[in-house]
């Protein structure tokens, strides 16, 4: 077993003709909590899909859990952006988690008790054990997010990829998800990659930050990456990282951040 959960060298990915990112070097140790930050369209979602083997890497080298991405899918838990479909809101949390248990296998699940027990365990692990019997439609956004994380945990993953899990959560909900992610790293040795828009809620939890902008990315500790010279090189314009009361605000030296890329590949407008 290698020391690294994710190892990439000069990794690049294209969607159609458009290069999303290139020359990405990553070395993420097992059990680390990594915040993936950057503006819209910087390639955060594409990177997560690349790690799952869903977006094809077009250049460089990439090993996930010591193997080719795609070969280790069974050990990766993935929570995409978004909400459960409207028609499933009558299902209980435990039923929706149970549906993910070995969901890639064919056939009808004959051991429903086992499926259910795994789902209950995953809900406990996601600090959502008390919600097991509640219908999804009655849960708050934060509770629903924890149920979705339980869904990703039900197959005992070694790597957890969370795409914007904090979006549309209030502060309390964000803290609960972050604490949960941290505990999964510490107690279970799971490596967690979490994309986010705002660095500040993550500051006290993450071990590493991967900052992506302008088709490039830098991985390192917050102090090594969120620096004016590094960010300026990434964005290709003079950037400032202002620290106030233990919070960090990244902004351009003057004025607004221009549209860095033409369009984000996953937003509704461009599909």
């Amino acid at each position: 077993m290698t020391k690294w959960a994710i190892e990439a060298h000069a990794l690049g990915c294209r969607l159609g003709a458009r290069p999303v990112f290139s020359q990405l070097d990553l070395a993420v140790p097992r059990g680390a909590l990594v915040g993936v930050l950057g503006p819209n369209g910087a390639g955060k979602t594409t990177l997560l899909r690349c790690l799952l083997g869903l977006a094809r890497r077009t250049e460089g080298r990439l090993e996930v859990l010591g193997r080719d991405p795609g070969a280790v899918r069974a050990s990766i838990g993935y929570v995409s952006q978004g909400e459960p479909p409207e028609m499933s809101l009558h299902l209980s949390a435990v039923a929706s988690v149970a549906a993910a248990f070995q969901g890639e296998r064919w056939g009808f699940p004959l051991h429903r008790r086992r499926e259910r027990n795994h789902a209950l365990e995953a809900l406990e692990a996601a600090e959502a054990g008390a919600l097991a019997q509640r219908p999804l439609g009655e849960l708050s956004g934060g509770q629903r997010q924890r149920v979705r994380i339980a869904q990703a945990l039900v197959n005992a993953p070694q790597l957890l990829l969370l795409d914007e899990p904090l979006a549309s959560l209030d502060q309390g909900g964000q803290q609960a998800v972050l604490r949960l992610a941290k505990r999964l790293c510490l107690d279970r040795g799971i490596t967690v990659l979490m994309s986010a828009h705002d660095l500040n809620p993550l500051l006290e939890y993450i071990d590493l930050v991967l900052y992506m902008a302008n088709g490039q990315g830098r991985l390192g500790s917050v102090d090594d990456v969120v620096r004016e010279d590094v960010l300026s090189a990434l964005y290709g314009l003079p950037m400032r990282a202002t620290r106030v009361d233990g919070r960090i605000f990244v902004h351009p030296d003057r004025g607004f951040i221009p549209e860095l890329t033409d369009c984000c590949p996953h937003c509704e407008g461009c599909k």
Partner: peptide, 18 residues
């Protein structure tokens, strides 16, 4: 049944599991 159930509830999660 099992892949269909997962894909009907969460398409992205299903894709993620292959």
């Amino acid at each position: 049944y099992r892949p269909l159930r997962l894909a009907s509830l969460d398409q992205d999660a299903a894709r993620g599991r292959g």
